[in-house]
Design a protein around this nucleic acid. Structure first.
Lengths: 208, 208
DNA sequence: CGCATTATTGCAATGACTGCAACATCAGGG
DNA sequence: CCCTGATGTTGCAGTCATTGCAATAATGCG
């Protein structure tokens, strides 16, 4: 990908990356609110105006790379098994993301997570991303079960999945003790999420 | 409540209400982004600076009154039955809110909902409110089951409940056809939500 | 009436974000 | 190599949300 670009595009990509790097470094050290666009562009050695050529807003620089493995999730949803129920399909899709090679607790993820958790302005942005992704999943799920699923049911189902995950992840990232434990063994994160999902749903199933 | 306030406080309350009314009217007619604080304060006949004496931000004026019946929900959570599981308690709490006299589809609610659904900036704010409420519910649930529930499980459980509701409500409010049907019969809203919750959870339960 | 509170206001400043036009640089053809 | 068009970068001016500070106006009370 990077190779077949002309010098021009490579330069542009370099500028963009410089902005991302400078921004994350400054956000991490000074805090998001205390860092101005001018600070970031100065560190990246470009004009302030240039920032907005690459990113639509200050927070966007943090959500540069693809959020989660949304595409993978959607792909799985597109191929339901013969006798698979929507809920089972969602669970399978979730598991395939969980066991993909995604780095759930890398250096970069931690910094980002910390920043988001302690900056209300960023929480808003993160949530917007989640909502967008959710819509995408609903669409995929409806495509998979065009006859047996109505929009409300599909949206509620996806909402339950995403809600469970967001609830669990929020605590996993914010609780200091938990975070420390997870930092020691990154694999642990998968186990925690797996437990959260399965035990939660088991509980919910026992309410009818 | 309103009666025992001195003239001073009544006047302040009137100013605040004038700002809320002016804001909602202008947002509804011109749109949120196209309405400036100056517009609002002009319509309310106060100084622009006064707006920020009453509200912390532009969007706050829309979330003035208590969001949902959070207190009622929390109250129910505080009194679990003898053999009631957390999931059953949550379901019961949800139902008592659902069947309280809350107006789920009033004029004001509709305007607000429409504005939020079509304004990304507001979606973020709304969800932040939801997340705050979610934390409160998690705390209440943990208090109710101090021995059998850990923070991650509680948060995941509450996340599932709230996620289901948000998913369903989003569609119920945004789908034009559904919205029209619901407008005709406000009671219908309760039935839709009841169905969304119970059928979703039933599906999820069948995944173990 | 005079004083302590408290609501409202004006002013100035910061910082995110945008439109526009100028400028610099790269790609390709002649 | 030069010309030309496309594209990345920049400067400038302006809008708007938001805030701190200090002055002003009302109000409550002794």
């Amino acid at each position: 990908m990077t190779g077949n670009m002309g010098l021009r595009e490579r330069k542009k990509a370099r500028t963009r990356q410089a902005l991302v790097d400078a921004a994350i470094a400054l956000f991490a050290s000074k805090g998001y609110d205390e860092t101005t666009i001018a600070d970031v562009t100065a560190a990246a050695d470009v004009s302030p105006r240039t920032f907005f050529v690459h990113f639509a807003s200050k927070e966007d620089v943090l959500f540069d790379d693809p959020p989660l493995k949304l595409d993978l999730f959607t792909d799985v949803l597109a191929h339901p098994g013969p006798d698979e129920t929507p809920a089972q399909l969602l669970l399978r899709a979730f598991r395939s993301v969980l066991h993909s090679d995604t780095d759930l607790m890398g250096q970069s993820e931690r910094i980002r997570a910390d920043l988001i958790l302690q900056t209300p302005a960023l929480q808003a942005g993160a949530v917007r991303k989640v909502l967008e992704g959710q819509r995408q999943l609903v669409r995929a799920l409806l495509d998979a079960y065009p006859d047996t699923l109505d929009p409300v049911a599909a949206s509620a189902l996806v909402g339950a999945v995403v809600g469970t995950l967001v609830g669990a992840i929020t605590v996993l990232y914010s609780d200091a003790a938990v975070a420390a434990r997870l930092a020691a063994d990154p694999q642990q994160m998968r186990a925690e999420l797996e437990t959260a999902i399965t035990s939660t749903w088991q509980h919910l199933g026992g309410t009818g």
